[in-house]
């Protein structure tokens, strides 16, 4: 189920995939190529490290269990060697401590196998250098008529103040920093709630619908949160 990311900021990236399972590697590489990215695949940890040190990539997708040199060591070596390329760490199903280990080694994000391509794609895009608003260190973040004050934790659309609860503010902030790109439900759970599991109830959906209602109440020039079927959500300028 490979879905096109209709982002207007769609730029090509160079992605390194370090994965020894040829089926998974081909699945990831094919999907990323369809998105217009350039992909290099390494089936061995040492080859992956060599490629990452030799060339410059925008994102590295690194499996934990690869022959030659395990993923954690590769990430540590990269960071020790001054390579700051964002890394998505792939861990095995059920690996309770893997997330912490991966992040401590210097990974920027993690994903539990098996994963859907849309999930990986959203994360690759979020980590890539295309993030237009992410670069703003400013306290004020704007998207169309929507403006967030990150210091005061307040929001307004045009002149109308937007009354948001703390979690709603965090959620909208994350969507704005990743505007025009798909953000998955799992990404929201991790970044807004620090939940690293899949809740059975509709936590994300409920919050999204509440924010939507508040945005719509502000008039037609407010940005809209779109649902991308089978992938997640996307905030677009109105």
């Amino acid at each position: 189920m490979v879905k096109a990311d209709n982002s207007p900021y769609h730029a090509t990236m160079k992605v390194l995939v370090v994965e020894d399972d040829s089926e998974t590697a081909a699945y990831v590489a094919r999907g990323l190529k369809e998105q217009g990215h350039g992909v290099e695949v390494a089936a061995d940890g040492r080859d992956g490290l060599f490629l990452a040190l030799d060339q410059s990539f925008d994102v590295i997708v690194m499996d934990r269990m690869v022959p030659g040199m395990d993923g954690l060591s590769v990430i540590k070596s990269l960071r020790a060697g001054g390579v700051e390329t964002p890394v998505i760490f792939l861990t095995a199903l059920g690996g309770v401590g893997d997330r912490v280990e991966g992040l401590e080694a210097g990974a920027d994000d993690y994903l539990v196998k098996p994963f859907s391509f849309s999930e990986l794609n959203a994360r690759v895009n979020a980590l890539g250098r295309r993030a237009p608003l992410r670069e703003q260190p400013a306290a004020l973040v704007r998207l169309g008529a929507l403006e967030l004050n990150r210091l005061q934790r307040s929001a307004r659309v045009g002149d109308r103040p937007l009354d948001l609860k703390p979690k709603e503010f965090q959620l909208l902030e994350y969507l704005m920093l990743n505007a025009d790109r798909v953000v998955t439900r799992t990404m929201l759970l991790e970044h807004v709630w620090d939940f690293h599991f899949d809740p059975k109830t509709t936590i994300v959906e409920t919050h999204i619908s509440r924010i939507r209602a508040k945005l719509e109440a502000c008039g037609p020039d407010a940005p809209a949160i779109h649902t991308v079927r089978g992938a997640g959500y996307m905030l677009n300028a109105g």
Binding site: P166, K167, W193, F195, T201, T202, I203, T206, H207, R210
Partner: peptide, 8 residues
């Protein structure tokens, strides 16, 4: 956790 689940 309670805050996360309260709306649902």
């Amino acid at each position: 956790v309670v805050e996360a689940y309260r709306p649902s």
